[in-house]
Nucleic acid binder design. Structure first.
Lengths: 108, 108
DNA sequence: CGGGATCCGAGATGATACTG
DNA sequence: CAGTATCATCTCGGATCCCG
């Protein structure tokens, strides 16, 4: 979890710090429905590399947005999902999606 | 304005394409109140370089989110503000700000 | 004042190989 | 399957200089 002192004053800047970057919002978009396994997520995101997906998930885990559940099985089985805190992000993501959808109706 | 073909299928990805990056949401946060002059914006954002501010504003102008009004005066006077399309972004930004504010109450 | 143009480095991202 | 480790690449953003 990020230390309080590292967070910007501005709440917008805080949100950007948490979900900025190319993939995090897309990861949240997927995880909102149900937990996903690693490679399943990787295939669906299509274009993301292993490393970047790992890094992104780790950061979001550190920030308390995502949980990681390792079933300890063999072959390995690990699932990622949204924490309660991560779920609080959903309305904002929906708003962004609304804007994205609206934008496409305008420019086409 | 971005060509329709360049836009991702997913509305979330579209939004990310438009307001991704470190500064664009912060620029929108400022411009929502009123038009700003270039250096005024630059000073307020504090940390952004000329180049990055210029690039960001140009892209947002190309995407139809921001207008640029050159008064053609001397000394130069140029103002940047949100277009109607850009204003449609405001609710999403408010949602993000809400999330950012909430997040800070949790982690502190 | 409001930029444009150029150069440059760090960090983000990507590709590949390997492991338990 | 779910990573780690390593190396390559590339984009973002910063520094600097210039102009009308």
């Amino acid at each position: 979890m990020k230390a309080k002192e590292e967070l910007p004053e501005c709440p917008v800047a805080t949100a950007v710090a948490l979900i900025g970057g190319k993939w995090k919002l897309l990861i949240i978009r997927n995880l909102r429905v149900r937990p996903w396994r690693f490679n399943e997520l990787r295939r669906d995101l299509e274009g993301i590399s292993q490393k970047v997906l790992t890094d992104s998930l780790r950061q979001m885990e550190d920030d308390g947005l995502v949980f990681r559940h390792d079933y300890g099985e063999n072959p390995p089985r690990v699932e990622y999902g949204l924490t309660e805190l991560g779920r609080q992000m959903i309305p904002a993501m929906d708003s962004l999606a609304d804007f994205g959808a609206y934008y496409k109706t305008i420019v086409s």
